Amino acid sequence: MFNRLFGKPKQEANALTTLDKLNETLEMLEKKEKVLAKKAAAEVEKAKEFAKGRNKRAAIQCLKRKRLYEQQIEQLGNFQLRIHDQMIMLEGAKATTETVDALRTGAAAMKAMQKATNIDDVDKTMDEINEQTENMKQIQEALSTPIGAAADFDEDELEAELEELEGAELEEQLLQPATTAPAAPVQVPAGRQPARPIPQKRTAEEDELAALQAEMAL
């Protein structure tokens, strides 16, 4: 159990420690390579000086030492290449391990969830929901059913009474006299006034009748 609990962190710690060690070694090799390169360049300068002084033997010795430095530089380059390769492989293995661990954790969680909610529990829950839904429908139907005096009313009679009321209302609307709209006033164009009636002259008979009415009034 302790191996299962503490094994993964220990492996991760080992991987990180190894990567740190490889990085340190790589830095050390790079520093040595720079030092050897400076020594090789110095031997070249010495060889030039000896060549100017016509000391051929000393110049050749400088070039030999320069070749030895170059061989060491090449060897250090191969070491660095191997370390880089090792670091890439280790980082890839670390990423693979982390991916597998994550997938394993997800699979375990999925398995636990499936175990907690198996198909029997789901079916039982759905049956309970359907039963509760059916009970609720029955309760609603019972509450909507009329009771007391309202339950004794005949729906057909009520509908017939409603039709009679509607027929009477329609008949009353048909018997009402149609209201006529008031005549619109005639507009007289501006500048045109209606002609006043011209008084007509009364005849002699009309004068005598008017005088007789005046005497009777006295």
Rank of each mutant, 00 (worst) to 15 (best):
M1T: 11
N3G: 15
L5G: 09
L5M: 11
Q11Y: 12
A13D: 12
A15F: 02
A15Q: 07
A15N: 05
L19R: 09
D20Y: 03
L22F: 02
N23Q: 11
T25W: 04
L26A: 01
E27R: 13
E27F: 08
K31I: 08
K31V: 06
E33K: 15
V35M: 10
V35A: 05
A37I: 02
K39N: 12
A41S: 13
V44Y: 08
E45K: 04
E45L: 12
A47F: 01
A51W: 00
A51V: 05
G53R: 12
R57L: 11
R67W: 06
Q72R: 14
Q72M: 11
I73R: 14
I73Q: 15
E74G: 14
Q75T: 11
F79W: 09
F79E: 14
Q80E: 02
R82S: 09
H84L: 14
Q86C: 09
Q86A: 15
M87G: 06
I88A: 13
M89C: 03
K94V: 03
K94F: 03
A95Y: 08
A95L: 13
A95G: 01
T96F: 15
T96E: 11
D101I: 08
A102P: 01
R104W: 06
T105R: 12
G106K: 13
A108F: 14
K111H: 10
M113H: 13
M113Y: 14
K115C: 01
N118D: 15
N118E: 05
I119T: 14
V122P: 02
V122A: 02
D123F: 12
T125I: 01
Q132T: 04
Q138A: 07
Q138C: 02
Q138G: 07
I139W: 02
E141G: 04
A142K: 10
L143I: 10
S144D: 14
S144V: 00
T145F: 00
T145H: 06
T145I: 02
D152Q: 01
L158W: 09
A160I: 08
E161N: 08
L162W: 07
E164K: 05
L165R: 04
A168V: 11
Q173G: 04
P177H: 05
T179N: 04
P182I: 01
A183V: 10
P185I: 05
V188G: 06
P189S: 07
P194T: 05
P197F: 08
P197A: 00
P197K: 05
I198N: 05
T203L: 00
E205T: 10
E206A: 12
D207K: 13
D207V: 14
E208A: 15
L209C: 07
A210M: 05
A210L: 02
A210H: 06
L212P: 01
A214M: 03
M216G: 01
